[in-house]
């Protein structure tokens, strides 16, 4: 599988990249790891004239905590998230999520920014980005723009980024005290993408009532979505198995679920409800045990 020919550019700064992006014309793709783009190039599904590799821009590789937020440069690889001491101290949940993406080869090159801009309907990060209520910082020649997670995923392979913008960083609010988080994923038997992936984040009161909950679902629809109907049924309540089971029945509300050659729409709906229920049960287990976030040690 051989891509059509293209010109390769490797800018050293965001400014330089933006300059290239505006001067090279419309036929440009940004390379941010390449685990979706390079296969598409090799299959000649896309044949851009220019490829701008963002790997040389140090400013896109920040991993830091600022103003009670975890700030991840868009070019942070999945492995860096999985293994970073900064992430591990600030938001161990995200280490766990990154470690569940694909395989080590992909995690070594794939980046969080690449994944979020590509907005693959079965990618892992989007569910968590929604549940974490993250913000995406997009830079263009006109300046910077902040997009909230709930506005980011707009449809199949479509994110709220403009043609001449670059996603520079992802800002993730650190979890408030007494907040538990789980990402649960059913791997596709062939691709190992998420058939369904559910991120559930719950803040509990001292008497174990749900003060706040955000659930992100990836895999089953055309893009990742919040499970608003489920969330509504949980806030203010004590989340026992019965309450969770009842609320999870609404897991597919607002999702347009189509069948494919592996799973029928009915299968996916059942799996979606099951995974929302299980993710919530596990989250509550973490809350009740006092652990709140997964404590898996990065390999």
């Amino acid at each position: 599988m051989f891509p059509a020919s293209f010109d390769y550019h490797k800018p050293g700064s965001i400014e330089e990249a933006l300059e290239l992006l505006t001067t090279l014309g419309a036929d440009v793709k940004l390379l941010a790891g390449g685990h979706s783009l390079v296969p598409a190039l090799k299959l000649r599904l896309t044949q851009p004239k220019h490829l701008i590799d963002l790997a040389g821009i140090a400013a896109l590789k920040t991993v830091a905590v600022r103003e009670n937020r975890l700030v991840l440069g868009a070019m942070t690889t999945h492995w860096q998230v999985e293994s970073s001491p900064v992430v591990k101290a600030a938001l161990p949940y995200l280490c766990e999520v990154a470690g569940l993406i694909a395989d080590p080869q992909v995690r070594n090159r794939g980046t969080i920014g690449g994944s979020l801009v590509n907005a693959d309907p079965a990618a892992d990060y989007p569910a968590s980005i929604l549940a974490l209520d993250a913000e995406m910082v997009c830079v263009g020649r006109g300046g910077r723009r902040i997009v909230h997670a709930r506005d980011w995923f707009q449809g199949l392979l479509t994110a709220a980024i403009e043609e001449h913008e670059i996603l520079s960083e992802i800002r993730i609010p650190l979890l408030p005290p007494r907040t538990a988080a789980t990402y649960l994923k059913l791997r596709h038997p062939a691709s190992r993408f998420a058939v369904v992936g559910v991120a559930a984040i719950v803040t509990v009161t001292q008497d174990q009532r749900c003060a706040e909950v955000r659930i992100g679902i990836t895999g089953v629809g055309s893009c990742a979505k919040r499970a608003g109907s489920v969330e509504q049924q949980l806030v203010g309540h004590r989340l026992d198995a019965t309450r969770i089971e009842a609320a999870s029945a609404a897991a597919c509300d607002g999702l347009e679920i189509d069948g494919d050659m592996h799973f029928s729409a009915e299968d996916k709906e059942q799996l979606c409800r099951t995974y929302v229920r299980r993710a919530l049960l596990r989250t509550m287990h973490l809350a009740e045990s006092g652990a709140f976030q997964p404590t898996r040690n990065a390999p």
Partner: peptide, 11 residues
């Protein structure tokens, strides 16, 4: 015997 086949059979 796929996951889908099992789900469908059980349904």
């Amino acid at each position: 015997v796929t996951m889908s086949a099992i789900l469908q059979a059980l349904r």
